[in-house]
Design a binder for these strands. Structure first.
Length: 745
DNA sequence: CGTTTTTGCCTTTTT
DNA sequence: GGCAAAAACG
C-alpha cells in the first residue's frame, strides 16, 4: 500500500487529474497501452518490459472503468500457466481498491486458445455434427487412430511413418484448412499424396468417434463461425474487448479465429514480440504480427522498450545479436540499471568439460549467495541435458529438468485415465482399445481385428460391436467370456460413478480391473514409481466433482499443478521451455554450428530457419538478469558418436564491447576471440560451398566397395547418402557411419 | 496368443 | 546409449 489512497471511485472525469494507483505505477508507454482501450492496438513488448503487467492492468482497467463486464472480455494465452497467472494478477489488481464489494474478474473468458475453443464448441456441438460431450484426443491418440486407418486402408507403404503423416495433417489444421479446402496442389505434401488422401478419412473417423484433436478445437470453431453466422454474431457481441498474449506465436487458424471474433468493434489488443517468435516449426506465423498494421490500418502501435530485467551489457549483447535478423518490427531495449557484468564466453574441449565448468561456476555463484533456483542451464536439444545431470549428481547439486515427460503422459497414468474415459464414454474406441488387454486378458490382435471389422460394418463403436457380437453368438469361447466380464465391470463402474466420489471410483477400478495388481507383480525397477503415480492420480482426482470435469482437465491441461519442490534446485531446460522465465544466472550451452543454430532447421527452412534460431539465442540471452555465460565445446558425443564442431556463428555476432572471453583451459589456440571465430566461420562456410561443388579431397566410395573402419572392421558399402554411408560389417552388422572414418580396403 | 529379439529412431513442444 | 515399435520366435 503505497500512497494514501485515492478513495474516489474512478469516475471518468475526476480520474483524469489523478491517476489511479494501478496506473501511476506504470511507465508512460505501459500506461498508454493500458488506456488505449478502444480500437485495435498492437503492443510490441520486448523481453522483460512488463508485458503481463500491461495485459492484466488493462483487463482490470476495462472492468473498473465500467467499459465492460468481466463476461464481455476475452483474453487468450497459449499456456494454462500464463492464463492462471493472469487470472491471479487481475484479481489482485481489482481487490486493491477499498470498495466494500470490489469487482471481480470471475466471468472473464480468460484461457488458452484451445480451452476457449472447447468451451465454445461444447455449447454448439450439434451444429457441426458432434455431441456436446465430445472427447479431446492427445498426440498419442491421434497417432494410434491414424495407424488404425492406415492398416484399414491396406496401405502397406512403410515409407511414411504415421507420425510424419500426422504432422502434415496437423500443419494443414494450423493453417485453418479443412479437407474440403485442400486443392490438388496439396497432394504435393511430401508424403506422395498419402496425407492428402488420409486427411478426410481421419476427420471422418474423428466425427464418428465424437472426438476432436487439438487442431480441431480451433478448426471446428472456424467452421462453426463461418457456417452459422448467427453464432458468430452472438460472440462478436458478447466479447466487447479481446486481448491476446504472445501474438507472435499464433498460427493461421488462431489468427482467423481472432479476426472473426473482432469483426465488428475491432477492440483487439495483441501483445507480442516478433523477436521472440520461436515456434514457427509448429505452425506459428511471425507474419501475423508483422502484418497487424495492414489488417487494422487504424491500429495503434505501442512499443515497450524499457527493460526491467537485465543489465545493460546483457541487453546490448542481445540487441546486437538480433539486429542480424531482417524483417523485424524493430525495437531497442534499454534500462536504467548501472553497468553490471559482461556476457562471458567460455571455449571448451568437450561436453564433459562443459558440464564440469558449469558445475564449478554454479558452486561459486552459490557461495556468493545466489540461490540455485535463480540459476538455469539452457540447452538447444534434449540430449544435452545428460552430461549436466551426470555432473550435478556427482557434485551433489540438486537440479530439476523442466519439460521432461509430463505427468499425464506417463504410460500408467494414461492407462488409468483410459479406464475412466471408457466409463464416461463407452464409445471412446481409442481408450477402450488401449486397455482392453491391459492387464493381459488374452484378447489379442486377432480378436481385436474381428471387433474392428464388425464395428466398421455397423458403423458403430467397439463397445457396441462387442455387445452385438455377444448377443448374436459371434464371439465364442475364452474371448467371449472375458469380454463379457469386462463389459460387465464397466457397467458396474458406470453405475458407481453416479454415486461414488471420483477417487474412490478410481480406486475400485484400479483394483477390480487388475491394473494395479499388474504393477504390484511387476519386478522392474520402474514399477514402484508407477504405483506412486497412480496414487498421485487418485489424489488429483479429488479436485473434480465428476469424471467429465476431470477428463476436460486432462485433455486441455497437460501439466500437473503444484508439484513444486521446496528445496532449491538448479533448472535445466531447453531454450524453448525457458521463454517467459528469468534467472539471475543463465548458462547458455552448446553454442556450436550444427547444434545451435541447428543444422536440421537450416536445412529445412534456410534463412527463415536461421533467423528463428537467432531469435532463440535472443530469448536465451534475455533470460539472464545478472550473469549470462555462454559456452561452446569443440567436441561433443551425440548418440555414441563423437562429433567436432566449430563455434556458433552467433558468438561472432555478439558485439565485442559487451562480452569477455574466459580463458580458462589450456591455451593451445583453442580459446579464441570472437573476431577470430567470425573469420573462421566465414571461411568454413565459403569452403563448404566450394567443397560441395568440387568435392575433391574426400575419397568417394562406391556401392559394394569393400572398406575398413577403425572400430567395426571390414565391411561392404550398401547405401551412400552424401557423407553418410551405410555399411554391412562382417562382425558388427549393418551400421551408418561417416565417410571420414572409412578407408578403402 | 504372448514373449523375446531385433531394428530403427533420435531438435525444439503446447494444447 | 536408450527406448519403443516391429518382427521373429515359441
Amino acid at each position: 500500500m503505497l500512497d494514501d489512497t485515492i478513495t474516489t471511485t474512478t469516475n471518468s472525469s475526476t480520474a483524469q487529474a489523478t491517476l489511479p494507483p494501478y496506473l501511476s505505477a506504470l511507465n508512460p508507454e505501459q500506461q498508454s497501452a493500458v488506456q488505449a482501450v478502444d480500437g485495435p492496438v498492437l503492443v510490441l513488448a520486448g523481453a522483460g518490459t512488463g508485458k503481463t503487467r500491461v495485459l492484466t492492468t488493462r483487463i482490470a482497467h476495462i472492468i473498473m472503468q465500467g467499459k465492460a463486464f468481466p463476461g464481455q472480455i476475452l483474453a487468450v494465452t497459449f499456456t494454462n500457466k500464463a492464463a492462471n497467472e493472469m487470472k491471479e494478477r487481475v484479481e489482485k489488481l481489482l481487490h486493491h481498491g477499498d470498495e466494500d464489494t470490489p469487482p471481480t474478474a470471475s466471468g472473464t473468458w480468460l484461457g488458452t486458445f484451445h480451452s476457449i475453443g472447447a468451451k465454445i464448441l461444447r455449447r454448439h456441438a450439434e451444429l457441426i455434427g458432434f455431441s456436446q460431450d465430445f472427447t479431446i484426443l492427445d498426440a498419442d491418440d491421434q497417432i494410434r487412430l491414424l495407424k488404425q486407418i492406415i492398416s484399414e486402408q491396406n496401405i502397406d507403404n512403410q515409407r511414411y511413418p504415421a507420425k510424419l503423416l500426422m504432422s502434415v495433417i496437423q500443419s494443414w489444421k494450423d493453417k485453418g484448412l479443412t479437407p474440403e479446402k485442400l486443392d490438388a496442389a496439396h497432394s504435393e505434401d511430401g508424403t506422395g499424396g498419402l496425407a492428402y488422401r488420409l486427411y478426410p478419412i481421419y476427420q471422418h473417423r474423428l466425427k464418428t468417434l465424437n472426438a476432436m484433436d487439438f487442431g480441431d478445437l480451433l478448426l471446428h470453431c472456424l467452421s462453426l463461425f463461418t457456417e452459422h453466422q448467427h453464432i458468430l454474431n452472438e460472440y462478436t457481441h458478447r466479447f466487447k474487448y479481446i486481448l491476446v498474449d504472445e501474438y507472435q506465436d499464433t498460427n493461421i487458424a488462431q489468427y482467423l479465429w481472432l479476426r472473426l471474433l473482432s469483426i465488428g468493434h475491432k477492440n483487439i489488443c495483441c501483445v507480442g514480440d516478433d523477436d521472440q517468435s520461436i515456434y514457427g516449426w509448429r505452425g506459428a506465423e511471425v507474419g501475423n504480427i508483422l502484418k497487424f498494421e495492414k489488417d487494422y490500418p487504424e491500429a495503434k502501435i505501442i512499443r515497450l522498450e524499457r527493460n526491467y530485467r537485465s543489465t545493460p551489457h546483457i541487453l546490448a549483447a542481445a540487441s546486437g545479436l538480433i539486429a542480424h535478423n531482417k524483417g523485424r518490427m524493430g525495437k531497442t531495449l534499454w534500462t536504467d540499471e548501472s553497468d553490471g557484468e559482461l556476457v562471458r564466453i567460455k571455449s571448451i574441449w568437450d561436453d564433459g568439460e562443459e558440464a564440469r565448468f558449469v558445475g564449478e561456476e554454479i558452486e561459486a555463484f552459490q557461495r556468493d549467495g545466489i540461490s540455485l533456483d535463480e540459476m538455469a542451464v539452457l540447452v538447444r536439444a534434449g540430449y544435452q541435458t545428460r552430461s549436466f545431470e551426470e555432473r550435478f549428481i556427482t557434485l551433489g547439486v540438486p537440479y530439476r529438468v523442466i519439460g521432461g515427460l509430463r505427468f499425464y503422459e506417463r504410460m500408467e497414468v494414461r492407462d488409468a485415465v483410459a479406464y475412466l474415459r471408457v466409463i464416461a464414454q463407452p464409445n471412446d474406441d481409442l481408450a477402450f482399445e488401449r486397455i482392453v488387454n491391459t492387464p493381459k486378458r488374452g484378447i489379442g490382435k486377432a480378436t481385436i481385428e474381428k471387433l474392428h471389422a464388425t464395428a466398421r460394418a455397423n458403423n458403430t463403436s467397439l463397445y457396441k460391436a462387442i455387445e452385438m457380437m455377444l448377443e448374436s453368438g459371434e464371439l465364442k469361447g475364452k474371448s467371449a467370456t472375458t469380454l463379457q466380464q469386462l463389459l460387465g465391470k464397466f457397467d458396474h463402474w458406470r453405475l458407481q460413478s453416479q454415486e461414488l466420489p471420483l477417487p474412490e471410483l478410481a480406486d475400485n477400478v484400479l483394483d477390480e480391473s487388475g491394473y494395479r495388481a499388474m504393477w504390484e507383480q511387476d519386478k522392474s525397477p520402474e514399477a514402484p514409481g508407477r504405483l506412486e503415480n497412480l496414487r498421485e492420480l487418485i489424489r488429483a482426482l479429488g479436485e473434480f466433482p465428476k469424471v467429465q470435469d476431470f477428463l476436460e482437465h486432462v485433455g486441455l491441461v497437460m501439466d500437473t499443478a503444484g508439484t513444486e519442490a521446496s528445496t532449491e534446485m538448479v533448472n535445466i531446460m531447453s531454450l524453448h521451455a525457458a521463454k517467459g522465465l528469468e534467472f539471475d544466472v543463465a548458462f547458455l550451452t552448446g553454442w556450436e554450428e550444427g547444434l545451435f543454430p541447428s543444422q536440421r532447421t537450416m536445412d529445412e527452412k534456410g534463412t527463415t530457419g536461421l533467423e528463428e534460431e537467432r531469435r532463440l539465442a535472443y530469448v536465451g540471452i534475455t533470460r539472464a538478469k545478472q550473469y549470462c555465460i555462454i559456452s561452446h565445446a569443440a567436441n561433443r558425443r551425440i548418440y555414441n558418436q563423437w562429433q567436432s564442431s566449430i563455434p556458433s556463428r552467433f558468438l561472432g555476432e555478439l558485439p565485442e564491447d559487451h562480452i569477455e572471453m574466459l580463458d580458462g583451459g589450456p591455451a593451445g589456440g583453442r580459446a579464441k576471440g570472437p573476431e577470430l571465430f567470425r573469420k573462421e566461420v566465414e571461411d568454413i562456410f565459403s569452403n563448404a560451398v566450394s567443397a560441395t561443388a568440387a568435392d575433391d579431397d574426400a575419397p568417394a566410395f562406391k556401392k559394394g566397395q569393400r572398406v575398413f573402419h577403425q572400430k567395426f572392421g571390414y565391411g561392404i558399402v550398401i547405401i551412400i547418402e552424401g557423407d553418410h554411408l551405410t555399411i554391412a560389417f562382417k562382425h558388427a552388422g549393418k551400421k551408418k557411419v561417416m565417410a571420414d572414418y572409412i578407408q578403402a580396403a
